[in-house]
Design a protein around this nucleic acid. Structure first.
Length: 756
DNA sequence: CTAGGGTTAG
């Protein structure tokens, strides 16, 4: 009908063009970009509005490059063309490009200013937005004020929003709604409801904001009550309810809403599909997806994500191939799917095929390589990246840290301009996990100096460093900080504290922490049991274990490692053997090499060397270095040269480059007085090229850990320290303290040195 | 044809 009408009036100049322009806009808005292109290309005469409409249509459908091409090609640009292009960049998250155009404009109107302010606030660049806002030519128009208020709201600054709201000269309904949204986005439901009651005028947006607020805090009942009070709910009211129920996995209620809706748009369908996807009901999701007459990029992305979620990558890929204009989100979803299943080559293929990529996509790819330990490739991408964000940097740091390359991690970290808590935590936990405890603590201190507050992860890592260094004073200080900043009730921190005190020999403090924390988990119990073990309190370990059972907790493999080592350290041989039996028979826990090592140690201490050896030979899993090491230790204790030699040789097969093993072997020979053999071991080391690692120790003085390395005479105060050592040796002789000289085969002339 | 408040994918 309308076409006929339009054709009838074709005589009037430009009315067909006018009609076609409208059609392009309408098609662009409803996602039918192909039809819009068809009309545009068939047009014989076009005016500036035609070009503007087409630019807008492209931009609304994610084809921002096509939009820009048209913008460049068009014969005559007006102010609206520039604004439309900026708006396109705004909706495609390309703030940088938008700003470039804005700068180049010769004339700007209120549209231009508002667009640009919105661009900056979307990007979190509130200060830039505010500078523009303050330069604003027309202060009486509420539109820009509203944009700035919304910008503050979305970035969590509702007080700033409120200040602006109170200051603005003319308010309209949108201003009131923007302020209402500010409260709701910051989960201030009390303030929001007061504000809502004070509003003299409300529209459906105001109501929708409130029901969304209830949904965000999980109060579905209140949301429903308010929803029923809305005078005339629109699609968005319905979708808010639908997606709210879907988000909380109340999928049947969500479906009921979906079926009852008097009107549905693409978003409604997408929300329902997303609900099913979240609930792993992919079959239901695909039925709806196929029924949809009008799919947009979100529909496709949601569905692809759904298949990725349940591991059906072929199905996901099929959909991606069918998708008409693949967007970054869909492609990134596919890439993460491949990465989750370690199919890096497939992931890379998609990545290479993409015509535009966002930072998140690059980051996903880099994280993928990092997870696979392929840091060279990760780093190559990192270097290629044009614009990086803080996540990019943190991903690379964590990648290097996990691969043990702390030098590289540190170098990247030091190049960062703006570090956040995640950057610091990646670095500190990297040091700690790679045994570089001092470096970990040093950076913990540096972080404090830069005024950054530690969080639970920082505390867990640095407490673990203290535990391994037995740095009690520093550990205690960190504990105070934990209390002060308020992480006492964090499980990770609590468990780290237990381990720290236990490893520092303060088992009473460990107990106290254990008793003080509100909620314990299996790791807390295991930590305290291992703590008892470490300090030789075998009976307490067993008693705690029994308490754990009465509490109804199920012990795991780690529990028994702690228990068995507790028994071996305390010489509780029968109890240990009984527990081992209990573990395998009652709890059906497959013993690990660690468990066998404990049992070997137990039998060995009791002098039952043959039995221990028998166990090692018969155990169903392969003995590891720990098992042979336990046997070797027992042999030395009971001076069993024959078995000891055998164990030592086995041990050397596992760890041919570990100096301490050679030391053990040569000590056995030395104790037996076979000096020829001792010499042979020394030759063997030379042959294998084993470097004697400098011995090191550390001492805590006035809250400062000092590391001493042997055979290093460069640093100051060496002479002083040696004098002191000599004096101490003399005193020790006086009180008849004799070090075990049989063990002192290695350089007695070592110098101890203060590194820091 | 372009700007401010509300929904969906990441």
């Amino acid at each position: 009908m309308r076409i006929i009408q339009a054709l009838k009036s074709i005589g009037e100049s430009g009315s067909l063009v006018f009609y076609q322009n409208q059609k392009i806009t309408q098609l662009g808005k409803s996602g039918k970009i192909n039809e819009a292109i068809k009309i545009f290309e068939s047009m014989t005469s076009r005016n500036t509005v035609t070009w503007n409409s087409m630019i807008s249509a492209y931009a609304k459908n994610g084809r921002i490059n096509d939009a820009r091409n048209l913008f460049e090609q068009m014969p005559l640009r007006n102010l609206v063309s520039w604004n439309t292009m900026i708006s396109g960049y705004l909706h495609n998250d390309k703030v940088h490009e938008a700003a470039e155009l804005f700068e180049r404009m010769s004339r700007r109107d209120l549209f231009s200013w508002t667009l640009m302010i919105t661009c900056y606030t979307r990007n979190g660049e509130l200060e830039k937005a505010r500078i523009l806002f303050d330069q604003l030519p027309d202060k009486r128009s509420p539109v820009c004020w509203n944009a700035m208020i919304a910008g503050y709201a979305k970035n969590g600054r509702f007080e700033d929003a409120r200040r602006l709201f109170d200051k603005m000269p003319v308010r309209n309904l949108v201003s009131w709604n923007s302020m209402l949204a500010a409260y709701i986005q910051n989960e201030e439901m009390g303030l929001a409801l007061d504000f809502f009651d004070k509003m003299s005028e409300r529209d459906v947006v105001s109501w929708n904001l409130v029901i969304d607020g209830f949904m965000q805090i999980g109060d579905l009942d209140s949301a429903m009550q308010f929803f029923q009070r809305i005078p005339s709910p629109n699609v968005i009211s319905w979708v808010t309810m639908l997606s709210g129920f879907a988000r909380y996995s109340r999928i049947d209620e969500a479906r009921r809403i979906f079926d009852q809706m008097p009107m549905r748009n693409v978003v409604s369908w997408n929300a329902m599909i997303s609900g099913y996807v979240l609930n792993y009901q992919i079959d239901e999701a695909i039925i709806l997806f196929e029924q949809m007459t009008e799919k947009n990029a979100v529909s496709w992305t949601t569905m692809i994500n759904g298949y990725v979620r349940i591991g059906k990558l072929e199905k996901a890929r099929e959909l991606l191939n069918l998708m008409p204009y693949k967007n970054v989100a869909a492609q990134t979803a596919m890439i993460s799917g491949y990465i989750q299943t370690m199919q890096m080559e497939e992931a890379r293929q998609i990545f290479d095929e993409m015509d535009t990529r966002d930072i998140a996509c690059w980051n996903t790819m880099i994280a993928g390589y990092a997870q696979c330990g392929r840091m060279d490739e990760a780093n190559k991408l990192f270097k290629q990246m044009f614009r990086k964000n803080i996540i990019t940097w943190n991903t690379v740091i964590a990648g290097y840290a996990q691969g043990g390359e702390m030098n590289k991690a540190l170098r990247i970290f030091e190049k960062m301009e703006e570090k956040n808590i995640v950057s610091w935590n990646s670095l500190i936990s990297g040091f700690t996990q790679n045994g570089l405890y001092m470096d970990g603590l040093r950076h913990f201190v540096l972080m404090g100096r830069e005024g950054k507050k530690p969080d639970q992860s920082t505390f867990a890592s640095s407490l673990s460093a203290c535990a391994n260094l037995a740095a009690l004073q520093i550990g205690k200080q960190i504990h105070h900080l934990v209390v002060k900043i308020g992480y006492v009730n964090d499980l990770f921190v609590g468990n780290a504290l237990i381990t720290m005190y236990a490893k520092c020999g303060r088992i009473l403090s460990a107990e106290q922490v254990f008793n003080d924390i509100d909620n314990t988990d299996i790791i807390s119990w295991n930590s305290l049991i291992s703590g008892y073990a470490f300090n030789g309190y075998g009976k307490d370990a067993i008693q705690l274990f029994q308490e754990m059972l009465t509490e109804g907790l199920n012990p795991d493999q780690v529990t028994f490692v702690g228990l068995l080592s507790a028994c071996s350290h305390a010489g509780l041989i029968d109890e240990g053997l009984k527990l081992f039996k209990y573990m395998t028979e009652k709890y059906c826990i497959e013993p690990l090499a660690e468990h066998y090592a404990c049992i070997v140690d137990l039998l060995g201490r009791a002098g039952r060397l043959e039995e221990a050896y028998q166990l090692v030979m018969e155990m169903p899993i392969k003995a590891n270095a720990g098992t042979w090491g336990a046997l070797l230790g027992a042999c030395r204790l009971h001076k069993n040269l024959k078995l000891g030699k055998l164990a030592a040789e086995k041990l050397l097969e596992f760890e041919p480059y570990k100096t301490s093993n050679y030391v053990l072997l040569s000590n056995i020979h030395a104790e037996a007085g076979s000096w020829n053999e001792v010499e042979k071991v020394r030759m063997l080391m030379k042959e294998k090229g084993v470097e004697k690692q400098p011995g090191s120790s550390w001492i805590e003085i006035k809250n400062q850990v000092s590391v001493f390395v042997s055979d290093d005479s460069v640093l100051p105060r060496t002479v002083e320290i040696c004098e002191m050592l000599k004096a101490l040796m003399a005193q020790m002789r006086n009180v008849e303290y004799m070090p075990e000289l049989a063990l002192a085969y290695w350089n007695l002339d070592d110098l101890w040195h203060c590194v820091k």
